[in-house]
Amino acid sequence: MGLTGYLLLAAALFSLGVFGVVTRRNAIGVLASVELMANAVNLNLVAFSRHHAGPTGQVFALFSIALTVAEVVVGLALVLLLFRAKGDVRIELASELKD
């Protein structure tokens, strides 16, 4: 299967992630959707790596995975904080940006 197929698959996965990020109401659900988007990007990187010489694509995918892990850790810490402050993790409760 060629590069185009993988890229289209990644695009579809990314779009699903976008949908989740703007529609999920639970903060953890949003976080999971963000993971989908990050995963789509990794898939892109690996697919490109397969069609270009050199390890750079995979190296970047590894960096990206590690970064995503860090992001999840901090994100979940924020979710816990939100839970502690509001007693729920519905994301619209965090609307302090408004004021």
Binding site: N26, A27, I28, L31, A32, E35, N39, N42, I65, A66, T68, V69, V72, V73, L76, V79, L80, F83, D88, V89
Partner: peptide, 21 residues
């Protein structure tokens, strides 16, 4: 991917779900 994500991140997220909901 399997070790970090499916092993680490998902466990963490499950914890998050259990704790908050």
């Amino acid at each position: 991917q399997v070790l970090l994500y499916t092993g680490g991140v998902l466990t963490l997220m499950l914890f998050g779900v259990m704790l908050t909901t």
